[in-house]
């Protein structure tokens, strides 16, 4: 089958490249995570109002960044998959979705844990938290759509369309939720933007952000690899079926 060789020529190169990156991503993740956690838990100053609870921010804020940027990345690879029909681009988007959903979920959980001492309740309809919640729904819809197709090629195209529509909508949703929030809540309620950004806070925050990113790259490589292998396995099984 000449066609299959052509179709999966790209993944071969992809596997070679990621195979080289993978060990580095593991090392970088471990080091950055250790440094970032140490800095945010021990070095960074406690907030004069919130005390040590402010340290939740170092887990929460980068997770929220990741949640949003992974969806954007998925939309970009979806566009690449749709336009240039690059099979790895589709698989990357598919593999990234659950990771992004986990980061979004982490941001929600840490947000509500942080909210407890700040607001005295585990959930407040704060603009940022609400936007994150909607983002989680977008992720869940995307993953559910992937699951509901048998044909992987069709699933890839359908989810690409959804991801692109979603990414156009995210700024509108964000804007509308902010609008809704200012309409319904007095300005005195503290928001999650935290205290003024000082370098002693910013540096651990950035280190944690980089650690998350490198963790994402690591897990993404594992997942994409697994996807490619699964696809090959399916094709092997099918050709076996045909011979019988």
């Amino acid at each position: 089958m000449a066609i299959d060789l052509h179709k999966y020529a790209n993944p071969k190169r992809f596997l070679a490249i990621t195979g080289a990156i993978y060990p580095w991503s593991v090392g970088v993740t471990v080091i950055l995570l250790a440094v970032g956690l140490y800095m945010s838990l021990f070095v960074a100053p406690p907030d004069y109002q919130q005390g040590d609870t402010v340290r939740i921010m170092y887990v929460h804020v980068p997770a929220a960044w990741m949640g949003l940027s992974i969806y954007t990345m998925m939309a970009i690879s979806s566009a690449i998959g749709l336009i240039w029909k690059h099979p790895v681009a589709d698989l990357t988007a598919k593999a990234a979705a659950p990771i992004g959903a986990c980061f979004t979920f982490l941001a929600l959980v840490t947000g509500s844990l942080w909210g407890q001492p700040m607001w005295g309740t585990y959930w407040v309809w704060d603009a940022r938290l609400t936007s994150m919640l909607i983002l989680l729904f977008l992720y869940l819809g995307y993953m559910a759509l992937w699951e509901s197709f048998d044909d992987q090629g069709k699933a890839a195209k359908a989810t690409s369309i959804l991801a692109l529509v979603g990414v156009i909508n995210i700024p509108i949703i964000k804007f509308s939720v902010d609008w809704w929030n200012t309409l319904h809540q007095p300005a005195s309620v503290a928001t999650m933007s935290g205290p003024k950004i000082h370098s002693s806070i910013l540096i651990p925050l950035l280190v944690m952000g980089l650690a998350y990113m490198s963790f994402f790259v690591m897990v993404l490589i594992i997942r994409v690899k697994a996807e490619i292998l699964q696809r090959r396995l399916r094709i092997l099984r099918m050709s076996e079926l045909k011979e019988h």
């Binding site: 909607i134 729904f137 977008l138 869940l140 819809g141 559910a144 759509l145 509901s148 959804l162 529509v165 979603g166 909508n169 509108i172 949703i173 804007f175 509308s176 939720v177």
Partner: peptide, 12 residues
């Protein structure tokens, strides 16, 4: 599935 896909986009 349709409601999961569409409802978040209806929020604005």
């Amino acid at each position: 599935l349709l409601s999961l896909l569409v409802l978040p986009l209806y929020i604005p």
